[in-house]
């Protein structure tokens, strides 16, 4: 049990570090969706099944999609992440 918690926690820590230091914004958004999914697994280990369902459907679908649409709108208005 403790081994699983430590493994999942290391994955989440590495994913969040990647989100912050990643160059490309789209890759960072996708990694954030993966971190949300692993946190839903963590909620299952904590026996919080309701929170796990909500986190899996909101954190990893809705938030990721909203970030992507925002990046698309920024690019249509002249935003370029290479600069």
């Amino acid at each position: 049990m403790t081994v699983w918690i430590i493994v999942l926690g290391l994955i989440m820590f590495a994913g969040s570090v990647v989100v912050i230091f990643q160059k490309s914004i789209k890759n960072a958004v996708i990694t954030f969706g993966a971190v949300s999914l692993v946190s839903a697994l963590m909620f299952i280990l904590m026996k919080a099944y309701d929170a796990a369902l909500a986190e899996a459907s909101i954190g990893s679908v809705l938030t990721t999609a909203i970030f992507f649409w925002t990046v698309r709108r920024l690019e249509e208005n002249g935003f370029n992440e290479k600069k």
Binding site: L53, A54, L62
Partner: peptide
């Protein structure tokens, strides 16, 4: 199913509503 069985099993209005919203997100994509 998740919304209507909220008082017996895990889930409920928040999770089921977010699932319906993600179905509409698929349609928008």
């Amino acid at each position: 199913y998740i919304i209507l069985h909220g008082h017996l099993s895990p889930g409920g209005g928040f999770s089921g509503g977010a699932l319906i919203a993600s179905a509409f997100i698929l349609q928008f994509i």
